[in-house]
Deep mutational scan, measured.
Amino acid sequence: MGFKLLSKLLVYLTASIMAIASPLAFSVDSSGEYPTVSEIPVGEVRLYQIADGVWSHIATQSFDGAVYPSNGLIVRDGDELLLIDTAWGAKNTAALLAEIEKQIGLPVTRAVSTHFHDDRVGGVDVLRAAGVATYASPSTRRLAEVEGNEIPTHSLEGLSSSGDAVRFGPVELFYPGAAHSTDNLIVYVPSASVLYGGCAIYELSRTSAGNVADADLAEWPTSIERIQQHYPEAQFVIPGHGLPGGLDLLKHTTNVVKAHTNRSVVE
Rank of each mutant, 00 (worst) to 15 (best):
S31E: 08
G245C: 02
P41E: 11
C199Q: 00
T86W: 01
Q235R: 04
D125Y: 07
K91C: 03
P107K: 12
S30W: 10
A25H: 14
Q235F: 02
R226G: 10
P23C: 10
P232V: 09
A259Q: 12
V212M: 14
T182H: 04
L249R: 01
L24W: 10
D216W: 07
S30L: 08
N92C: 14
S137Y: 02
E233V: 09
I151L: 08
L6E: 05
V11W: 14
A144C: 12
A213C: 10
L195C: 01
R110D: 03
L195Y: 00
Q61W: 10
E225A: 07
V75Q: 02
S155M: 10
G148A: 14
N211A: 08
A218D: 10
T254I: 04
P35D: 04
A51M: 13
P170F: 13
A200N: 02
S208Q: 06
I74V: 07
L24Y: 14
P23K: 12
E33A: 09
G123P: 01
L5Q: 11
R141V: 11
P107G: 10
G123H: 01
E99D: 14
T153M: 08
A218C: 11
V45D: 06
T253H: 02
S7F: 15
H260E: 07
L5N: 04
V126N: 04
S181G: 03
V187D: 01
L195V: 06
L82M: 12
G89Q: 12
S208F: 05
E219R: 08
V108S: 07
I224P: 00
N149C: 14
E225Q: 04
D77L: 07
Q103V: 10
E225C: 11
F26K: 15
G89H: 14
K91A: 11
V256L: 14
G242L: 01
V132M: 15
L82K: 03
T14P: 09
R120Y: 01
H115W: 00
I151M: 02
Q103L: 14
S62K: 14
D119T: 00
V212A: 10
V212F: 09
A94P: 06
T254S: 10
E157Y: 03
S139P: 10
F116L: 08
L204A: 05
R120A: 14
D216Q: 11
P190E: 05
L97D: 02
V189G: 02
A179M: 03
A111Q: 04
Q49Y: 06
H230Y: 02
A15Q: 15
A209F: 15
S223K: 01
A59K: 15
S160T: 11
W220T: 03
T254H: 15
P41K: 11
G158E: 04
Y48G: 06
I50H: 15
A87E: 00
A94S: 09
R128P: 02
L83N: 13
Q228D: 04
F174H: 06
C199L: 01
I201S: 10
I20Y: 11
G169F: 14
H241P: 01
D125W: 05
A129P: 07
Q61T: 06
L6F: 12
P239Q: 01
T254K: 05
D29M: 09
D183I: 00
G78W: 06
T114W: 00
T36F: 15
A51H: 03
I238N: 02
P221F: 13
G43Q: 10
V187Y: 00
A21W: 13
T140F: 02
E225W: 03
I58S: 13
R110S: 05
